[in-house]
Design a protein around this nucleic acid. Structure first.
Length: 524
RNA sequence: GCGGGCGUAGCUCAGUGGUAGAGCGCCACCUUGCCAAGGUGGAUGUCGUGAGUUCGAAUCUCAUCGCCCGCUCCA
């Protein structure tokens, strides 16, 4: 098990603060108080996320011969989710303890035998407090009747105004009413820890539902994962694209889950984006391909700037995997709030195509021309959380560097994004705002580079401050048009600019004409 | 969903019943020949929201929303 104790809340707070201050991520609906579990990306966050998605798409779909893309509807038919098991099958019935408020999974309570004491209500002598609420307690092994009644009085004490008297005396004084007993066997209605009655088991609604049609009579669900539209269109993709096993279908898009408890900034949100591949293969290749995809995906993270030593691979053991999965790897990252999952690589066997073939009554078998076999392909699913990866990129990039060599403390905040991920690729400054020629040339360079990359122009304040502002949003390169550019004192430097590197703060001179190829080689 | 903490300017926070504050940031001008915090001036607040108590509420009470921590949950 990963060590969850390695957390740094202070660092996380600084990151959240920077995200808001510099326009990476805002809380959704903040103007009206905020919407729990939902987030908006600001200008820079949007660029960052787009860079990630574009890179994933390029590496996963465009640069591979065996993966095709699709973009499915978010609104999903009830039948699809019935077959997949999202309706009915996967949601766990939960009970709450009426006394301790502990939440228990109804299906994990051991059946118990014993005597149950039923009460119809309680009152408090010498006051007008009285309740008709019924309550029951199971006598646990080793408990006497007095203990059972104490438990009941503790329950009723929740409804007594605390101002009546001090709590201990109040509990002792409560009069229980209508006591009867009953022998029960195999009950799961009582908390094994304290004998208290539980609430009725409730199905937690883990999906978001919506309605449409003229009077809103038709029910649809916001998809809980992008995977289901891939499984449902697998046959159409196969028939329309002349592909052979093994092949994959990839999708990037929004999914929605009614998370009970959204936490950790954007990490667990109700609305989130996934980058998923369903890779269809022959049954005998499933295990091997799962391992291969794990390697492919780990390499991907290294390429976008999340080093291998910050990733942890969890080989999910038997019993903790989804029941249909023969093998699952979780790829986890060391977030400041703990080691948490970025991506799951799961071997899902033929479960998904199987349930949809059955649910729809349509054959989904693959016919192998060479071997003349007909079978349901198996599926390996590398499923990455897009917002989680953006958050990992931000956490990984965030750095505070001490520069105070002369005794003064100077902390430089730098987002060390890889150039390919950085929201702004290059910033362009005239050294002096008042020098018209420098301003003119700077804007000319900006126009030259803009068709190729995201460029930012700034002429306010001292140039040092402008450098630092760009450091804080992770711009890898800054270009300064200075007096040498104009060739005023050193004619041989005419037409060159200062190029300043974010990470080292070092500078070099480059000819304006060389800028585009130089940058293009580094920012993609 | 439970328990605890918190919510005042863009950010970090001070302000415990009597005129809404500081530092940083931001904007303008000046200065500035390459790495923040120099000079002058300026803008910015439904004190999270709503009700209540009060002559008067950022301050007290209740509710609600949101954030953080711990449980719980995560197909």
């Amino acid at each position: 098990m990963a060590n969850k104790d390695v957390t740094d809340p202070v660092r996380m707070e600084k990151i959240v603060s920077l995200c808001k201050r510099r326009g990476f991520i805002f809380q959704a609906g903040e103007l009206y108080g905020g919407l729990n579990g939902c987030w908006d990306y600001g200008p820079l966050g949007t660029e960052l996320k787009r860079n990630l998605k574009d890179y994933w798409w390029r590496k996963t779909v465009q640069e591979r011969d065996d993966v095709l893309g699709m973009d499915g509807a978010i609104l999903t038919m009830e039948e699809v989710l019935q077959s997949s098991g999202h309706i009915g099958g996967f949601s766990d019935p939960m009970c709450d303890c009426l006394l301790s408020k502990a939440r228990l999974r109804a299906d994990q309570i051991d059946p118990q035998d014993g005597t149950v004491y039923h009460f119809t209500g309680a009152s408090l002598p010498e006051t007008d407090w009285k309740t008709e609420k019924a309550y029951s307690v199971l006598q646990l092994p080793g408990q006497d009747e007095a203990k059972v009644r104490k438990t009941a009085r503790e329950y009723y004490s929740q409804f007594v105004k605390e101002s009546l008297m001090n709590k201990k005396d109040a509990i002792k004084a409560i009069q229980l009413e209508g006591e009867t007993t009953e022998k029960v066997t195999g009950t799961t209605r009582y908390n094994p820890a304290n004998g208290s009655l539980l609430t009725e088991p409730r199905e937690f609604n883990l999906m978001l539902q919506t309605n449409f049609g003229a009077t809103g009579e038709q029910v649809a669900y916001l998809r809980p994962e992008t995977a289901q539209s891939i499984f449902c269109q697998y046959k159409n993709v196969l028939d329309s694209n002349r592909v052979k096993l093994p092949f994959g279908i990839a999708q990037v898009g929004k999914s929605f889950r009614n998370e009970i408890n959204p936490r950790n900034f954007t990490f667990r949100s109700r609305e989130f984006e996934q980058m998923e591949i369903e890779y269809f293969c022959r049954p005998e290749d499933g295990m091997r391909l799962t391992d291969e995809w794990l390697e492919t995906r780990l390499n991907f993270y290294a390429e976008i700037g999340i080093p291998r030593n910050k990733l942890h691979i969890l080989d999910v053991p038997d019993g903790e995997r989804a029941f249909y999965s023969k093998k699952t790897y979780d790829i986890e990252y060391e977030f400041p709030f703990g080691i948490q999952e970025l991506e799951g690589v799961a071997y899902r066997t033929d479960y998904d195509l199987g349930v949809h073939a059955k649910g729809s009554g349509r054959p989904l078998e693959y016919f192998d021309e060479e071997t003349k076999e007909r079978f349901l392909p198996h599926v390996v699913e590398p499923s990455a959380g897009c917002d989680r990866t953006v958050l990992a990129l931000i956490c990984e990039a965030f750095d505070e560097e001490e520069l105070g060599t002369d005794g003064k403390s100077d902390i430089r905040t730098v987002m060390r994004f890889m150039p390919s991920m950085a929201p702004i690729k290059v910033a362009i400054f005239p050294l002096l705002k008042k020098n018209e020629e420098q301003v003119r040339l700077s804007k000319e360079i900006q126009k030259q580079l803009q068709p190729w990359m995201n460029v930012f122009y700034d002429d306010s304040g001292a140039v040092g401050r402008r450098y630092r502002r760009q450091d804080e949003v992770g711009t890898p390169f800054c270009i300064t048009v200075d007096f040498e550019t104009l060739g005023e004192e050193t004619p041989e430097l005419k037409g060159t600019v200062t190029l300043r590197h974010r990470d080292s703060m070092e500078q070099e001179r480059l000819a304006i004409d060389d800028l585009l190829p130089w940058l293009l080689a580094r920012v993609r």
